[in-house]
């Protein structure tokens, strides 16, 4: 029951984000959206994912967006006309995806194909092979350790990219401010 309430709240938050023009409120609602989905992850038994989503989605990403707002503008411009073409594209895509779900295994079905293959091996053997009680941890850090290393490479690359993009602006901004003060 509570998951249906949370899902409905999520949908309402997303629709409010579409309508709002004040970017500060939009960023705050994005934080709410992440926190609600973290709650939903707990209900869906994905406790590790919930931790990460609450810390990264609701925490770090909100801080990054607020920083961006502080450096740029806080209000979204109101467009002259209502965009019709995007709405049509979105409705058609949504209808195609809805049609696709009709063939999916029903939610929570233990006999679904996803539960029949690879996963049982990890559930049965990871305890003796790796010795870590948390199966997610043993897959992430041991069976797929190299993949996690690749993930760190992605973060490192993104960090370098951000430094290159923003490294030069600090000095120029300061110079601009000095010139404004003088002029």
């Amino acid at each position: 029951m509570i998951d249906i309430v949370l899902l409905t709240f999520l949908a309402l938050t997303a629709l409010a984000i579409v309508r709002l023009r004040h970017l500060f409120a939009v960023v705050m609602l994005t934080g709410v959206y992440s926190l609600l989905s973290a709650g939903l992850f707990v209900l869906l038994d994905a406790v590790d994912v919930a931790f990460i989503e609450a810390a990264v989605g609701a925490g770090i990403s909100t801080v990054l967006m607020l920083g961006t707002l502080a450096l740029t503008s806080r209000r979204e411009k109101v467009p002259g006309r209502i965009p019709v073409l995007p709405l049509i594209v979105v409705l058609i895509t949504g209808a195609a995806l809805l049609y696709g779900t009709l063939d999916m295994p029903r939610f929570g079905d233990a006999g679904a194909p996803i539960h029949r293959h690879v996963a049982p091996r990890y559930i049965h053997d990871s305890g003796t092979e790796i010795g870590v009680p948390n199966i997610v941890t043993s897959v992430l850090a041991s069976y797929r350790g190299f993949d996690t290393l690749g993930e760190l490479t992605v973060i490192f690359t993104a960090g370098i990219g951000i430094l290159l993009l923003l490294g030069g602006t600090g000095g120029r901004r300061r110079k601009d401010e000095e010139m404004e003060e003088e002029g």
């Binding site: 990460i52 990264v56 990403s61 559930i123 897959v139 992430l140 993009l165």
Partner: peptide, 26 residues
Amino acid sequence: FSNPLPHVLILTAIVVGISTTALGLA
């Protein structure tokens, strides 16, 4: 137990997602 493999995939996806978000915001 619920299936642990989607959890592992999504853990990686969240971290990659925050990297791309940060780069986009920069």
